[in-house]
Write a protein that binds this DNA or RNA. Structure first.
Lengths: 342, 342
DNA sequence: TTGTAGGCGTTATCAG
DNA sequence: CTGATAACGCCTACAA
């Protein structure tokens, strides 16, 4: 591969000059610039951004850590991150944790070894050692989706407790009294736990008893939502409505209900969380708590770049809480008490 | 930041030794290894993979070029790529072209500047200059989704012509005679063009006339599919069935039909292409041509690593055609001729 | 405006 | 088994 050196020789200038035409074309005569450019063409020169990174200690790369790119909510925020980063001339390295904290830990380290300048991090333990390590080393990062426990940490997200609360309020307003929840295992996702907190708060506010038997924690997959339905409907006193901590589980649950012949929303109401683009197309259209994922990614990256610029900004500007919206669709209906057989 | 040098000083060994315990721990005494490891701990050493890349000329990074990570078909293949790469200790840099060739060209260059060792490329012009440039420079890459014109180029994909053919055959077997197509603009996507070829082939085989008015080329977006419906249904002699070149357009089209009160499949049949995970959940479940996207990504990366290993393999092993499958669901129904009013 | 030379953090070769 | 040292390709004072 041709290097800056080869180009220099060919153009009969110094490497410094070549470097200049690359980085500060203004600081070079038109004539020499031309010479250098044609020399570059001639030897098929390809700039080596690695060497640049080593030399300047700026890789122009950031890392994105998410649970799983397959989940549309994460592809949306990823796209938001990429679009902002790319405007700044940065690239992204993308890794998936599959909600596994050990993997998250390992990947964050690998990303740091790759010299990413900063991280947009979706963590499963906002108070965990990954975040603490980053803080200790003053490594630039911004959390998305989860709220950091630590006050100085930048983040962009929605109020998950409030989201869970809203979802449940809707169901209760529809006269449902036995409301189940299918949640991502709390050990896997802090967001899921928060949403459950909101669910409980709503129950409490409305004087409804909390029945732990109505909450099933599971893993991330359509099938898991499906399975959860079996479990829930096998109960002696099954729920008439279900809140799912994400849309994937909700879709799985819907499938599960259809399979056992339960009609949605006549016999069972469902509300999801995330409001991925597809939720409005499913049958019936899924009621869900909307998160502005693209915007979250974009904003997070905006903040990350502020952090990188090292010009100090008030920490308050680094904690952004976007609004969730309740997207009401046809997967929920009022509950009518059936006649009780004697 | 602590470097290998700091560690060496602290452990009272040479940098060479430190490097050894990192890369070939076997070639070092247990004792010195311990010394070095504790020294690394002590100064919070973080390995610099950039420097390694410069020195070894291996960045342990590959590039992924796709139109848009938002499209689930691409997140699936991306995940397949990532999973294989990560098994080999590689990371990926992901970029979106938005089906824009200029962008593709620019991004491929940037990726090469970042010294990615290879590329898994989704191109819009398999015979274009991007691919040719790569070939000329003997840069390792494998194409996915599209078929290269050039014989030596590695690729993994499905037979798009056959896919389009199958979709259309299904519709024809259901007695449809006016079959429209909503396609991604051929200038944007070579796949779309191929699928159209298959569509035409099927028409021809069945002795149906080809009506260009029934084919609308558009951009990638739900709304574009929706718009296309207006256009098609405004025709004096509108279609009774529609083949869409991808599921996103199909979902948009379905929405469009619902909005004008056309029932699917009773009044209009629809078949898509890609069979993304969500297509089975929509209303009605979408008939679609299934592409094994995850597997395509995985296989493509497998091949890429063979290419990287420089051990020569038969080119034939580098051209993989996976099977499409026709996933028949409820968005298609037989066409019954309506009574003609006199 | 242009050139010289040292440094960025690793690896790898070659001695010891 | 360990150490010294020259690359790797680029950037950036500092000089000229």
């Amino acid at each position: 591969m041709a290097t800056i050196f080869d180009v220099a020789r060919r153009a009969d200038v110094s490497v410094a000059t070549v470097s200049r035409v690359i980085n500060h074309p203004g600081k070079v005569t038109e004539k020499t610039r031309q010479k250098v450019n044609t020399a570059m063409e001639a030897c098929g020169y390809v700039y080596n951004a690695l060497a640049m990174g080593l030399s300047t200690k700026r890789s122009r790369t950031i890392g994105i850590v998410i649970p799983n790119i397959i989940n549309p909510i994460f592809s949306e925020s990823t796209r938001g991150i990429q679009d902002y980063a790319s405007e700044k001339g940065y690239h992204v390295i993308l890794v998936n944790t599959d909600y596994l904290y050990e993997k998250e830990k390992r990947l964050v380290n690998l990303l740091r070894e790759k010299q990413v300048e900063g991280l947009v991090l979706t963590t499963n333990k906002p108070g965990g050692e990954v975040v603490h390590g980053l803080i200790k080393d003053e490594f630039p990062f911004v959390l998305i989706y989860s709220h950091p426990k630590h006050p100085g940490v930048a983040f962009v997200g929605v109020d998950n407790i409030q989201g869970g609360f809203r979802a449940t309020e809707l169901l209760i307003s529809l006269k449902h009294r036995r409301i189940g929840m299918i949640a991502l295992d709390f050990s896997l996702s802090d967001r899921s736990y928060q949403r459950w907190l909101g669910y409980r708060r709503s129950l409490k506010k409305n004087g409804l008893p909390y029945d732990p038997g109505l909450v099933v924690q599971t893993e991330y997959a359509f099938e898991k939502g499906e399975k959860a339905v079996e479990l829930l409907m096998g109960l002696p006193h099954p729920p008439t409505a279900i809140f799912c901590s994400n849309d994937i589980l909700a879709l799985g649950a819907m499938k599960g209900f259809k399979e056992i012949g339960k009609r949605i929303p006549e016999e069972i109401s469902i509300v999801g969380f995330d409001d991925i683009a597809f939720s409005k197309f499913v049958a019936p259209p899924l009621t869900s708590i909307h998160q502005p994922a693209y915007e979250m990614g974009w904003k997070a990256t905006e903040i990350l770049f502020e952090l990188l610029s090292k010009i100090p900004v008030q920490a308050s500007r680094h904690r952004i809480l976007l609004d969730t919206e309740l997207a009401v669709r046809q997967s929920c209906a009022p509950f009518f008490k059936k006649k009780v057989k004697n």
